[in-house]
Design a protein around this nucleic acid. Structure first.
Lengths: 235, 235
DNA sequence: TAGATTGTTAATCGATTAACAATC
DNA sequence: TAGATTGTTAATCGATTAACAATC
């Protein structure tokens, strides 16, 4: 059997990760989950894993895992499986963790603070450069080590500091005007928690709308129907 | 043309909304979005809408809307379209807004507070009955009008008050033990914000795992690839 | 009635799974 | 070499779209 540490052949395969504009959204939405599980495996000290084993851990088919990964080139090795650290790193690269993205959080309310407090950003290689709010008693302070500025200075701050991503936790009413500023200064991505679907004309801006309410409703649907379903089965 | 207010025939069609165990998850995940748009239309004073018009608003096909709605029976009327209020109400029913569900929020940190502060719950007919935390300085207080109790009393509270849904905003480490208590007292649904995939053996418990980090990573992927894609097109 | 638009069936498209040859 | 497991093609399955008859 081969050494577990050294995986000859894998590292040399493909040095450049190109942009894959043709990969289906379904595949892309699964990548973070793979990344999470591989992170757990690293922490558990596991060095290699087969698609079969990972599949049974994740509750998906081995075929799907192999198919998904092969959208981006061969990360594994026949007869061996996948090197956990290597695969984790590669998926991380695909997901932009090595790009050094810089983010601002707009809105320093409960949700803004909740997001600021997590390690969600650093863990993914994203720097939280600043927070913005209209509340004068917060302006000038720091929240979890992140400086808070007035929203009025958002535009100039983004111009003076390279900012890639904006996290929007402002009230619905403020979202539009904040977005206009962000688009003007060339923001690349907006993570929108304002309770509305943000539409941006500029094609170079990526918007990810979060609708927690939709998730709650889906849960309620399942609760309602699970109960009914189980009741029916008992009869 | 018919009266816009009265939609003869529609109301009488199907009085009982049965449980639809065979409807695909893809359809169910779209229902909350329809519900949102219909809510907006009500607020805008619109009385009726065709699948075609709604489709163009939402950026989907009219076919999909009709197909989706027909999984649950006919909500529209040939030659007329859909009555906005009626359809909104029916989708709301499907999603359990009329079930009078009662929820507890476990964890009174930033995220717990953020969720407690929103109208997300009342708007969907869900009552926030109580919050729970281990922090003694919070126990006995109220947060946005919701009483805060010690986590130790979670089990007895749920037994004494009908609680359907638990919102988990506790640290990863605490999630397992809290879940055990919840399952024991017969919780129906768990909305899990702890940074891990919660698995519950008991088949009658529905779990909805939220992974905000996955969403952030997807955004980063798109930012990375959009940039690359646009660059390529310019050449 | 004529026009409009649904409900529903049929056709297409895409995504998942199975199978297996390639190869480590 | 033999065994294992990937990468990849082919088969299946499910979801979306198109079309149109039913009907308000």
């Amino acid at each position: 059997m081969q050494s577990i540490d050294k995986v000859p052949g894998i590292i040399e395969k493909k040095e450049e990760l190109l942009h894959y504009t043709d990969v289906s959204p379904a595949v892309i939405r699964r990548l973070p989950r793979y990344h999470r599980y591989l992170g757990d495996l690293i922490r558990a000290g596991k060095m290699r894993i087969s698609s079969k084993e990972l599949a049974s851990m994740m509750g998906v088919t081995a075929s799907q895992i192999r198919q998904d990964l092969n959208c981006f080139g061969g990360f594994g090795q026949q007869g061996y499986g996948y090197n956990v650290k290597y695969l984790h790193g590669k998926i991380g690269e695909l997901l932009g963790t090595t790009e050094g993205y810089r983010a601002v959080i707009i809105g320093a309310g409960n949700l803004g603070r909740a997001l600021a407090a997590t390690h969600m950003f650093d863990r993914r290689g994203v720097t939280r450069a600043a927070m913005f709010d209209t509340n004068q008693s917060l302006v000038g302070t720091e929240i979890y080590g992140i400086p808070v500025y007035h929203v009025d200075s958002l535009g100039s701050f983004c111009e003076e500091n390279r900012i890639d991503i904006a996290v929007l936790t402002v009230p619905k009413e403020a979202a539009k005007s904040v977005t206009d500023v962000l688009v003007k200064v060339g923001i690349k991505g907006i993570w929108n928690f304002a309770n509305m679907e943000l539409k941006v004309e500029d094609e170079s801006v990526v918007v990810e709308n979060i609708h927690l309410g939709d998730s709650l409703m889906t849960l309620c649907y399942e609760v309602k129907n699970r109960a009914a379903g189980l009741g029916a089965e008992e009869k």
